[in-house]
Amino acid sequence: MTITAYIYLATLLFAIGALVVLLRRNTIIVFMGVELMLNACNLALITFSRMHGNLDGQVYALFVMVVAAAEVVVGLAIIMSIYRARRSASVDDANLLKL
């Protein structure tokens, strides 16, 4: 058993995250699916870093975490403001721009 098993696990988690984004209707859970995809990518980056004996993967994983944290802050603020205007957390109700 080699460390490529981690990469297969990351692929599986990424696919599940994509499934969550496509299927769930609650905005917060959809957002958590995006986080799951980012985390799966981080696992692959860490594994590649170990595979190649190079720290670039770890550095990128850290940077992805920072970007994800910024994304969470802004995204949750948007969810909150939509909820205040619409009283709903469903992705289907956010149709303000629809003609």
Partner: peptide, 20 residues
């Protein structure tokens, strides 16, 4: 931090918001 933020928003938005 991040999951705490998620839980905080779930608390504010309310768990009762039912999705059709």
């Amino acid at each position: 931090a991040v999951m705490m933020l998620f839980l905080f928003v779930i608390m504010t938005v309310g768990t009762e918001s039912s999705i059709s």
